[in-house]
Design a protein around this nucleic acid. Sequence first.
RNA 1: GUGCCUAUGGUGUAAUGGUUAGCACUAGAGCUUGUGGAGCUUUCAGUUCGGGUUCGAAUCCCGAUAGGCACCCCA
Length: 435
Amino acid sequence: MYHMSLHKPKKLSTDAYKGVRDFFPTEMAVEKKIFDIWRTTVETYGYEEYGASVLEPAELYRAKSGEEIVNEQTYTFTDRGDREVTLRPEMTPTLARMVAAKKRELVFPLRWYSIPNLFRYEQPQRGRVREHWQLNVDIFGVESINAEIETINIACDITRAYGLKDTDFEVRLNNRKVMNYVTRDVYGLNEDAAHKLSKLIDKKDKIKPEAFEMGATELLGDKAQSFLTLLNSKNFEDFTSNLPQTKEEHVGLAEIRSVIDGLEKLGITNVRFDQTLMRGFDYYTGVVFEVFDLNPINRRAVFGGGRYDDLLSLFGNGKVSAVGFGTGDVIARDLMETYNTVPSSTPSADIALIIIGEQNTPFALDLAQTLRSKKIRTVVDLSNKKISDQIKNADKRSILRIICIGDEEVKTGKLRVKNMSTGEEIVCTEETISL
RNA sequence: GUGCCUAUGGUGUAAUGGUUAGCACUAGAGCUUGUGGAGCUUUCAGUUCGGGUUCGAAUCCCGAUAGGCACCCCA
């Protein structure tokens, strides 16, 4: 126990801390179901689970994300040894650290997944909380776009397992190589201007067309109009034909084409090239993708990921090609609620033992052990209440079967297993009992 | 960090500025000491907090706090 204020007994709030969730058994059952979908799906692709501590040195994120993000958007504190510690806001740096650490002894290609809880210090709103659980799926050591195809395939399998049909969602693709080619080679921007332009593209759907056009003109001058035409291309073919003539197809475009073709061969046709898809991370180097629910109520991406071939070089161990994605439990819940596929809860036990008369408790406890040894989930009613109350209680918990244990049963050893939905009773003994 | 909205028992809700703040659900007790789902009786429990206006505030005003939503940001 901890000390409460001695002079002023103030009631403690029963609310969970801002932006984090309590999981009461009803909610926990749903959470477990989500994790179960994640685990069983990725394991059919041969992925292995890994884990790590929620605590990381703050510098792990500073290296990549910058001072401001660590200070303002993470939970960071100083420990007793004056170390800056951060509650992990994402898993990828931890994963990169782990893979880099054992790079020489790991067998590639590596297929790893994890379900970490992640923390972000932000204003909670729909689809966004301060602590969430996220499935992270990554494949290391595959240079070809088959890695992209595999991970997107997994993402689609999981989305379907949530209860969505292929017509309910859409995979959106882009390629950093293409965007770099467009901004640097085609429009001749320097790194800084290219970065600004990609931020602007990211905002395109959120700001007014005039504001977007103005921003584009600022960066591109008289080339802005041709850029706008390019960016407003309706589809992939349209986009490639709006690009200025080049001798041969750019490698980034070829990758996109291959991913779309490869997925189509696997029966995934709800894939669309989206030239405005940027994703916030700077570390992506190739194909980036998101999965979106087409129902506008869920505005946030269901999945997001891409290729990040350079990240491991942060740890000075050379490059390792990598493709991965993440998806959260919050959006999974939102989707299952939207599509009415939230799994119903299952009873906590297969059978309830009802005790009539306290003197019969030892017999019931012994019988319970026998049942459990037969893998029958057994709960003993220890309330000493009236028989009707005990039966009511079992009924409220949707426990399908009961046995009443009174003087008569203890004396004769004859037990009656009652089925609560049919009312049917089966006579047996402790030795012959089964469900 | 900014803006908008909201705040009544555990939950969901009702109450032209004017009775003792009503109802439903849940939970507890009972009608019912060997068989449940129904019904009836009954108990516990509420105007977020602090000011102000008024003869009178759950109701109107101001502030605080909390929550939701959106922006910012998005790993």
